[in-house]
Design a protein around this nucleic acid. Structure first.
Length: 154
DNA sequence: GCCAACGTTGGC
DNA sequence: GCCAACGTTGGC
């Protein structure tokens, strides 16, 4: 039984079209411990991922990806030349982790945040809670299905 | 561009 | 260990 996740990215930085082009990508640059813990400990091969566009016009869920490689030390945190370099991170004692995801599907139309908010069955989603800004977060199986339904109906 | 909410840092 | 200051996220 796979689990489901939602990952946020600003489309100007990395969009679902970029993932479609790359087919597979790591998910680096996350510098939040809770999000890291999900990637390091909880995300499993085969899990489903909603690709969320944040700070976008409009923001919302753009499509689907799938976990293809489970948590491993994030390379850019160990690379002094990289913008995501972290002086605290060491090869034998990494601080930050990432997973690899592969492109599965881009929705014909993005499911806007506004639509998610209007959907009663989704009101418990972490994404929709006030002030929450976790960039990697779990999605319930029921919510996953509801959102697939919304995407199909657009 | 604004700003509320949040996470992190660092002085004490 | 508290908490003010600061930087970041992300909707609007």
């Amino acid at each position: 039984m796979p689990n489901y996740w939602l990952m946020k990215s600003e489309p100007e930085a990395y969009s679902i079209d970029d993932l479609k082009r790359d087919k597979v990508s790591l998910w680096d640059g996350v510098r939040n411990y809770q999000a890291r813990n999900f990637m390091r400990d909880a995300m499993k091969k085969g899990d489903g991922v909603f690709f969320y566009h944040s700070n976008a016009e409009p923001s919302g869920i753009a499509g689907i990806a799938e976990v293809v490689r489970e948590g491993y030390p994030e390379p850019s945190a160990l690379n002094p030349k990289h913008a995501y370099y972290d002086t605290e991170s060491r090869k034998n004692k990494p601080v930050w982790y990432t997973v690899d995801i592969k492109f599965v599907e881009k929705f014909k139309q993005l499911v806007p945040l506004e639509t998610l908010r209007k959907t009663k069955a989704l009101e418990q989603m972490p994404l929709l809670q006030r002030g929450q800004r976790l960039s990697v977060q779990p999605v319930g199986a029921k919510e996953w299905k509801v959102i697939l339904g919304l995407a199909a109906a657009l």
